[in-house]
Design a protein around this nucleic acid. Sequence first.
DNA 1: ACCTCGCGTTGATCTGAATCAAGGATGCCG
DNA 2: CGGCATCCTTGATTCAGATCAACGCGAGGT
Lengths: 245, 245
Amino acid sequence: MQDHFVHVQCGDCPIRHRAVCARCETDELMRLEQIKYYRSFQAGQTIIWSGDRMEFVGSVVSGIATLTQTMEDGRRQMVGLLLPSDFVGRPGRATAAFDVTATTDLVMCCFRKKPFEEMMLSTPHIAQRLLEMTLDELDAAREWMLLLGRKTAREKIASLIAIIARRDAALQRKRTPVALSVDLPLTREEMADYLGLTLETVSRQISALKRDGVISLEGNRRVMIADIDRLMEEAGDDSDGGILV
Amino acid sequence: MQDHFVHVQCGDCPIRHRAVCARCETDELMRLEQIKYYRSFQAGQTIIWSGDRMEFVGSVVSGIATLTQTMEDGRRQMVGLLLPSDFVGRPGRATAAFDVTATTDLVMCCFRKKPFEEMMLSTPHIAQRLLEMTLDELDAAREWMLLLGRKTAREKIASLIAIIARRDAALQRKRTPVALSVDLPLTREEMADYLGLTLETVSRQISALKRDGVISLEGNRRVMIADIDRLMEEAGDDSDGGILV
DNA sequence: ACCTCGCGTTGATCTGAATCAAGGATGCCG
DNA sequence: CGGCATCCTTGATTCAGATCAACGCGAGGT
């Protein structure tokens, strides 16, 4: 009943947005199409600071962004990884709760928050679709809590690779549920911040997985998954699907 | 514009539900009132197993429930703590992603999922209110990720006490933003599962906070906050508000 | 009274990951 | 080409928290 909102192509965006931006028959969504605009960010640029007024919502068209939280003494924790098609922003919230940073050059498809929210009020499907997406994110965040609280360093690394591989496959609409060759979109330090580790430990565990024949590397960033079953086992993932932020 | 949904008293429930159950003038909500029913659970009883079909949604009226995730080898991580007025369930999801367990005797105010969802389709406010609640939970989950990934054992304990104290105060609609005397609703082991620690470490850190004059204990469960500023400082909480599950 | 059971505390020891430290590889720019 | 910066790897050492183990305490139950 709300199928036509999911995976519809958005105007001239290169990717399939998940819902909020649709070339769709309904008037409401045509209006959405009319209020959208694009913004580009450079690698390393901060898109929004925690506490800032949020002026827009939108979704990632290309590039990678991260959601991070920082303590006064500098300890950082990444709380979300935004890949193309992911949605950013909180309708109904005035300020951002976390820093949003572009880690690569980035293009976003944005909607000014005010008109978007007005639209949401008059278009129930949008709120319902956003609810669905937010519930997915919540589930993903809770999966991540298990990783942060209970997994070993090795399991954390294996999980991260598995998750990125799954996301990659989904994005490229591959047959296989998991991509066998993945570009890690993050530096070792960023991975460490995501996994609650130090960059040295990340490096060591990647080396260990390579030494043990679970993965192989091509350069620093490209990972070839040598033994997919082994990787999943190492990840300690009981969860069937494994969702991501 | 949706103010009358928030904090309205629900029929004969003893507590103020957050939104979904209202003695409200509108037809739609009167219908909600008509499809609700109560369920009781005993302490220790599992309400829903991960993977189970979810037949209802609802909110906690009295008692405490937890959301947990378990790995095959028995490692557990609590991913949510449900206090009175918290909502359980995912409209639009067929199965539960986590175990839900009553840790004390518990009463829930439930709605069968089917009619609730139909209602949601015809009543935009409900979806919007649920979206708002889910966004709150997501923010809380992400705060918790910082705790799990980066805080020390001592900071974790201080944070837990601070959060429960804040929730308590909010629930009792006290003047002070933080209750100064709190009943910990969890065993040491449950706290450990929530914080990603072992029960021994939890016990030791509580003893340490007591020895250092930050808190004092009355029995095992009742905590008196001796030095509120110190506690907040120990929690390492930069966040102003501090939200909970 | 005694036993038992669930919960909590505390001590001794071990260990996985952090920390401290030194280099290596790659790419950019003068 | 050399110099510098960024990112990554690897080794040595330390330390916070896990693990292993013993014991205390109160609530039921018989």
